[in-house]
Design a protein around this nucleic acid. Sequence first.
DNA 1: CTTCATGGATCAAAATCTATACCGTTGGAT
DNA 2: ATCCAACGGTATAGATTTTGATCCATGAAG
Lengths: 234, 234
Amino acid sequence: MLWGLRPVEPRAAYGLAVDLLRRQIHAGLLLPAEKLPAERQLSDRFGISRVTLREALRVLETDEYITVRRGAQGGAFVADEDRLCELARRRMLRAPAKTMRVVEFLTVNQMAAARLACMRRGPAEMKRMREAVAMMHAARTAPHRKQAEALFLLALGDATQNPLLARAIEDGLAELFLPYDTPSTSEAGTVALVNFERLLAALNAEGVGEAEAAMADLHGLLWDTVRRLGRAAA
Amino acid sequence: MLWGLRPVEPRAAYGLAVDLLRRQIHAGLLLPAEKLPAERQLSDRFGISRVTLREALRVLETDEYITVRRGAQGGAFVADEDRLCELARRRMLRAPAKTMRVVEFLTVNQMAAARLACMRRGPAEMKRMREAVAMMHAARTAPHRKQAEALFLLALGDATQNPLLARAIEDGLAELFLPYDTPSTSEAGTVALVNFERLLAALNAEGVGEAEAAMADLHGLLWDTVRRLGRAAA
DNA sequence: CTTCATGGATCAAAATCTATACCGTTGGAT
DNA sequence: ATCCAACGGTATAGATTTTGATCCATGAAG
């Protein structure tokens, strides 16, 4: 008896590069309007040829994730904030329930990560999380806040010393492609910052219960945001 | 600033087929000594050419996951029980801590799955779980028990209606490559069966607390097994 | 207006995958 | 004892993808 031998789906190298870049944009690690490295450098980083990288850029350009300008000081640029918001909205409209499932998955794994990281976090990960909180303080725009939060959560995943858990968080963040906060919710951003600091302090003190509480509050905010966006879409 | 633009790792189609088959063996879905379909049929299922499939079989044969016999009634056969146990032991010795992390990851996501499946399970998934429990009853050997348990847990993942969660469980089971239970623990197998039945009943009755308790007990048994294997390896 | 870092384009060679056909082996049916 | 059908094993030609290399086109800075 054979169980679930599904067709294999070979992925061309250019497709993998597309995924990687798109995930970085979704997670907010790449900022709107940010300039990507020159093609020759990017292809080096990815370990693929320039021709292949260009195929990937062509796909992302077609999907309006990036724009490409020629000439000196030209290059590939991430789409601007408005366009990314539009893409995010469109994506959420295509499958409204999917976003809820992603948040659900993140809740499960990030709560566990908060607990485990308390016991296992190394100095390197603590440093990354401290730096991320500093970035949140310095951030004056929604994209910068989102970037800092993603960096914090990725560091949290690594702090568990559990590759599967870290990967789950990475995948969840890459799937969670939300429009940037509107100014009306800048107050909520402050509340989030407070809870990230609570979480950081709890990790420092190995306070498992406190870390879980802070993470729970953060997900409370996230659920509020998702519900609000869901209503706005309807 | 660029965050974590790692090299892309293009995977050839034959490598994906290797992974798929290896994962099925690890998860216990493919039984020891089981005959795989003929090359012409397998390549069809995978959607790859026979030549490419044969590359994959060659790799698995080299790693001693399968053996290939020629002639009528020949074909590719999963390695026998002893060899699979040996491979599993070798794998656990290479990275003893890794197994713990996989169990940890499974605990987190399967506990969540038990809770969510209570609310969302559809009739199709309930049927699969009932059939899996029936298979456990009928099973007279460790491999058959393991296969039935894997089928149950995969159905549980699907019952959450959360693709990310289902995928996490699938990945965890594929990473968890344990030697088959020795006869000395057949008693523990009975305890496991009781808890699978408890879980199934709780899912039927939408008893969230009871479902979580049953799943927690199942993971208690799993942790016992892993600890025992860890001691045996040392 | 020149410079030069950038994207744009082309081409031949290598690697991978596919489709098809045919050969060799083996166990069971006649 | 012979034949046959179901297998794995092998060979070949062609399509697709990736690469490395080279040269062209653009346009902002000096």
